[in-house]
Amino acid sequence: MKSTLAPPSPSLIDLPDLQLDDARALLAHDARNGQPQHDESPTDYLQRVIDSLCELSLKDPLTGLGNRRHFHAALVRQIESVARSGESVLLLLLDIDHFKNINDTHGHLAGDQVLRAIGHCLARCVRPVDTVARYGGEEFAIILPNCRPLFGRTLAERIRQAVSDLCVQVSPLLNIQATISIGGAYAPEWVRSTPELWIERADTQLYRAKSNGRNQACIDQPQELSVSAEEKGLLYSHLAADEANPFEFGPGNVTNRVNA
């Protein structure tokens, strides 16, 4: 993001005059971000502050995962890509089971630790291209581009298993084990869906997983739309005939008949 142009003259950006205190306070968790480095131009410094603020605005502070804004932007990008490429993209919504009980029994700090541990566990379960976000409260969302329909259920099951195997140590004497319910839906291939409709379909599956007794994954399986190599081979077999016999339509031999 750094500009390749020469830095503007100091008169254009007067650092001491800028009200950067709030921005510095927001970035204070990272010492390098707060203050200008000695060899840094004012433009580079401001760019770094802006980049850091952008990053901050997309992150969930508790878990370090993407926040809802980040998730929404990623979802919209995927919808565009699916509409053009027909790629199969899976959306998972994951909700911690009986989270209210954890909070009520062990306190909110313990609840936060469980959220953080499960968030990290989810991030470990998926590929770097996947988007893991905290959707809100005790709910997470994962967007998995290029996820073949056959793998969706296996993958969701693997995530569910990883979370239920997790043992969160909230104090030397207390370990908490939590489970999650997962609902998943593929974006309809080649179709430009909307975030609302897609989330709603995943949410319907999450509701199914919850009402079936929790600690399970339900996936809305898409229609298999891809055209396999075998299908293609059979589809194109007329082309060989065309090659072998390439005479053209003459004015007298236009014949069309309903053949069924």
């Binding site: 077999s237 007329h238 005939a241 339509f249 031999n253 014949t255």
Partner: peptide, 22 residues
Amino acid sequence: QATRPGSGAAITNQLQQVLDRF
């Protein structure tokens, strides 16, 4: 844009066969 008389019927027939099978 058919280039050969009867090719449309053949193509439709081909599509039908692939559909029936898959």
